[in-house]
């Protein structure tokens, strides 16, 4: 009973109640997050393959192997950043356009809003499979349409850049509604009178957008960009379902690289090292992004 007494002595009643409330969450977090991360971290310093499960300690050798891997440096990292940049920029632009269009009242506004939000409810894997069939070179609807319009059918997923474009397209399709939803909420929370003042001041719609809407919406935009960038960095499912990283690893993103190394080539050591490297990269990128965008916001205020 001594630990009970110790608990009672060191914490007040309210604190003990709070500890009780967070205990389940902490337990789950430790068991399913902290422990696996620790195991993964430990594995990244070992030579651990399914064919050679001795788990010899090798220090930073696995990290060096990842960072000197031409596939990682020349394909995976550029791909990941390019994907992140393209997906976030395009979704932000279209999401903003949609939000602006939805922000003015019109007939059937609610219906249109609901329909636009549907992609948010589609599982990414399903969306990816859908897209894969649409762009299938023999049976896909895209080629059919292209042919009726007099174009040449293409093997979309065989070429690196068209496959990459389809991945970005799928991701944008999934995430534009999310941007639209958040930006719309932001737009609707903006005070009306500066816009009325601008209307009376004779401001063109473009100047209103450029000098009022964007600056006033900046906090929301920053949060959207940071969240989505970090999220896009670890995209796995749609790439896996669309191309599996192919053709010939040409569309491989960082998460696919880590997964394949660990669970396809069964090199747990190197896979863990890749995963942790990626984790560190996105940590730095996320912080930098937040710093830069927040600085932009402060300067403009």
């Amino acid at each position: 009973m001594s630990w009970r007494n110790a608990l009672r002595n060191s914490f007040g009643e309210q604190q003990r109640f709070m500890l009780l409330l967070i205990a389940p969450a902490v337990t789950l977090l430790v068991l399913f997050q902290a422990v696996p991360i620790f195991i993964g971290g430990s594995a990244s310093f070992r030579d651990w393959m399914l064919t050679n499960p001795k788990k010899t300690w090798v220090g930073l050798a696995q990290y060096i192997s990842v960072l000197t891997d031409p596939a990682f440096l020349e394909i995976v990292l550029p791909n990941t950043f390019l994907f992140m940049f393209a997906s976030v920029t395009i979704s932000l632009a279209f999401g903003m356009a949609l939000a602006l269009a939805l922000n003015r009242p019109f007939r059937a506004q609610k219906v249109v809003q609901t329909i636009l939000l549907l992609p948010l409810m589609v599982a990414p894997v399903i969306a990816a499979i859908m897209m894969r069939w649409m762009f299938n070179d023999q049976f896909g609807i895209v080629n059919v349409v292209l042919e009726t319009l007099g174009g040449e059918p293409r093997a979309w997923l065989v070429d690196r850049w068209s496959a990459f474009a389809i991945i970005v397209l799928t991701d944008c399709w999934l995430w534009i509604p999310w941007f639209a939803l958040l930006l719309l909420a932001g737009l609707q929370s903006l005070p009306k009178s500066p816009f009325e003042a601008a209307a009376i001041d004779g401001t063109t719609p473009w100047r209103v957008f450029r000098h009022l809407t964007v600056p006033m919406l900046r906090p929301v935009i920053i949060v959207c960009i940071v969240i989505r960038s970090i999220d896009a960095f670890r995209t796995f499912d749609i790439v896996w379902a669309l191309t599996g990283g192919g053709p010939a690893r040409q569309t491989e993103l960082f998460s696919i690289y880590a997964y394949e190394t660990a669970f396809v080539f069964l090199d747990f050591g190197k896979g863990s090292a890749a995963a942790i490297t990626g984790g560190l990269i996105i940590l730095v990128v996320g912080l930098l992004l937040y710093r830069i965008l927040d600085h932009v916001r402060k300067v403009s205020l």
Binding site: P191, S193, P194, E196, A197, A198, A199, I200, D201, G202, T203, H211, L212, P215, M216, S300, L301
Partner: peptide
């Protein structure tokens, strides 16, 4: 006519200044 073509100016209760400028 839209507001900008009426050549009027307005002062609002909450000032309606452009806060970031």
């Amino acid at each position: 006519l839209p507001p900008r073509d009426r050549d009027v100016a307005m002062v609002f209760q909450n000032y309606a200044l452009y806060q970031h400028m």
